[in-house]
Design a protein around this nucleic acid. Sequence first.
DNA 1: GTGTTTCCTGAAGCACTTGTGAAGTTCTGC
DNA 2: GCAGAACTTCACAAGTGCTTCAGGAAACAC
Lengths: 225, 225
Amino acid sequence: MDRKPLVLVVEDEKDIARFIELELAAEGYQTEVAFDGVTGLSKFREVNPDLLILDLMLPVLDGLEVARRVRKTSNTPIIILTAKDSISDKVEGLDAGADDYLIKPFSIEELLARVRAHLRRVNPAVTGEVRVADLVMNLDGREVFRGGRRVELSAKEFELLELLARNPGKVFSRFEIEEKVWPEYTGGSNVVDVYIGYLRRKLEESGERRLIHTVRGVGYVLREE
Amino acid sequence: MDRKPLVLVVEDEKDIARFIELELAAEGYQTEVAFDGVTGLSKFREVNPDLLILDLMLPVLDGLEVARRVRKTSNTPIIILTAKDSISDKVEGLDAGADDYLIKPFSIEELLARVRAHLRRVNPAVTGEVRVADLVMNLDGREVFRGGRRVELSAKEFELLELLARNPGKVFSRFEIEEKVWPEYTGGSNVVDVYIGYLRRKLEESGERRLIHTVRGVGYVLREE
DNA sequence: GTGTTTCCTGAAGCACTTGTGAAGTTCTGC
DNA sequence: GCAGAACTTCACAAGTGCTTCAGGAAACAC
């Protein structure tokens, strides 16, 4: 999760593809390139990138169709980059599952800014922040805010919250949590429960919505309700 | 999130604000409007919208500053909508935390398509999902929805439903079910029947179509009828 | 060295889940 | 329409899982 973000560029004009690739590399991203729709789709499945930059007019398989198929199984942000500049093309592209739509000729600075904006949402490594609902965790600074209010956490509390907040909506069993946050311990106690209690007391002061939910018989999950 | 999404529009040109508001309402969104930066920010904190449409040139408090402050504590998508069309303005806006940047004059269709795209992302599509008819099981999150309504299940109920929902249309004998969901038990009781009853009571509230069907002399099956 | 905070344990109390047997209902074949 | 089988529902007891509390050891700050 904290490796360099990987961007896949699917673009049949090789000059443009190369240009984008170089600029992305200069920003510190890993890159992959494909020159037609079918190769793009299979490469997508192979490398599972953090973001996809997609031309619409592609040989073999249309870009729109690529977007739709990617969306069937993946949540990865898609930026469409194309010369087709009509409003209806834009609407169609966005409704096919794309997250952004940029017209050629484009400014590379704008493209890079948009790439940053989308990656920021998906990949905490980019900003060093994790955000869920009104909870903000600054991983570098080890700061936590709930709805603007600063919350002081101890080291273990922070680790536990980080695990949950990086995977919002996923239910973790006590065993999973213990393995990750208390790797040195052999279990047999209720540390996890106790620390969940600590977090709740600090994060869910009277009147605030519940963030950490108990799933009886299974474990705990952090999610907005 | 099953309610109508709420969009906050912060825009000082009242005609434009009104126009956007009407169009959003026509699409089925709830809307709120503010005409300057400070009001916008306090309204944001008050109503906690699902999406923010933000002008840059605002009285009292600059739009960029609003974006930054919102981002300090919130994850809500921000679409900047402005007449400032230079590349550096765009880069600055996106880096201030905005998710999208649209130039005035804009096409309302494009704005609406972008609103849809961003809202789609906030409501995260879950990976481990099983769908049968209007039943949705989120396996990672251990959540169950019937026709949008959330259904609370105990651990055993969930296991049983998961078995049936993973194999819609397949008839399971009581013996098969008992083997898989109650492997530790030696049988001889009517647990399966009782738990099917629990599920029915929760999943088939008055008026809803039957999901779990009895196959007399054989067992049970989950299917759409 | 003293005081404070963090970390972990064990135990008590409570609420919910689970499985059972029996009673009640529906279905089927004759 | 009846008898028996199959299925559903009910009420309850036992068990389990969760939360909280209090306390001691360890780490840290001053």
